[in-house]
Design a protein around this nucleic acid. Sequence first.
RNA 1: GCGUCGGUGGUAGAGUGGUCAAUUACAACAGACUGUAAAUCUGUCGCCUUAGGGCUACGAAGGUUCGAAUCCUUCCCGACGCA
Length: 423
Amino acid sequence: MIFKIEKKLENSLGRVGVLETPHGIIETPAFVAVGTKATVKSLNPEQVKDAGVQVVLGNTYHLYLQPGDEIVRDAGGIGKFMNWSGPTMTDSGGFQVFSLGVAYGKDISKITKITDPSLLIPERFDDSDAPRLAKIGQDGVSFKSHLDGSIHYITPEKSIQIQHNLGADIIFAFDECTSPAEDLRYQEEALERTHRWAERSLAEHRKLLLSHGSHTNLNVVNESNIAYAEESTISGVGPALFGIVQGGREESLRKKSAEFIKSLDFDGFGIGGSFAKEDMSTAVKWVNEILPEEKPRHLLGIGEPEDLFMGIENGVDLFDCVLPTRLGRNGTIYTKSGKIIISNTKFRNDFMPIEKDCECYTCKNYTKAYIAHLFHGKEMLAGTLASIHNLYFIVNLVKKIRQSILDDNFFEFKNEFLETYLK
RNA sequence: GCGUCGGUGGUAGAGUGGUCAAUUACAACAGACUGUAAAUCUGUCGCCUUAGGGCUACGAAGGUUCGAAUCCUUCCCGACGCA
């Protein structure tokens, strides 16, 4: 994997670049489509590609449970398995530590409102007896499968082994995504754990890369082995590994984490965590001011339009988010003047496309009335057409932002877009 | 004509003396969703309301009862059976 910066955004951390992977290039900043179970829900790869998507992200935990990482390996890797010829990434399962752990069965997720009382009273989250599907153990996490209840213990080593089997171009270290509602003491403890896991992820990754070649001293970290490992990620023998910065909403912890993860020899970085919306830009800025400029940064799981502007301005190169496809399937559609719920009564006889100047397949061929009809009828095509538009909308927005940096009018574009979008 | 069974909110369909403005499902309406436990979930769903309550309702009209969607009488309507 090779990353080149083409242009920087003046007086900020933002930049435009190109990321070369064994399966093709990614022009950054870029929006990564989420394909958790080796499929971008409701879309076939051709539709994903036509929406302008450059790279797809699968999930370690989900693919390990089903169909099993060895099946994906034997199929020729995640890309070949799912018939996606472009670049691929896999998340480590670290997010499931959170979503199936403390967040399980609760009304907390990736983004929390800062007014949420749970943020003000961290003690309320001392509910270790609450049912959850993920529990953090001594050196890993035990998961109770949501599919059949079976227990699986995932360590950093295991996550990396699975990801090597899945065979994506870019993989992530195993981390713990924490809730912003956790108190400082827990954030510190979790961060220490994530850092230890980062080292172990990297060590396992090196070991696996070297085992692909003829190197004999697999456990020795020397210049020759490191050089070989780097070469492997370029040739496609093995994936590139991104380390993940955590640290919650605390400035000192975020910076400490960025410094630590930076000190390890990762190919790039992920910025993780469950944020209060208001905290996100500062957290990203703290981190990206520290991370080495020459390596790519991925803001994990973030993707509302206003977040994309924020992230790019603050030096983020890659985003992934379930929103375009999940919202699409659930009937919410992005437009330049905000999100609409297409099943609403007012669209039932609206025979215009979602956006008349949109170039996506959905807008070029269908009316709002028809899509509203499909949702009311619970037809499968409803989610597909809405996902196509939403994915195109978000992917294309990032492309436009990229172009605006190249054209030296990022801030004008940002103001103009957000003024209309946020009403 | 006689007999039997039935008529419940937009629909289907529970309820068969008080806890019933009426279970439930569907439809309808509104909303939520940020490294996917998610083609999922939440709320509203007779009318009025200063949200305490008030009013009108289970085919229609009477009646029994402290109290009726629930029991009785007559009528109307539907299905089936016998003539």
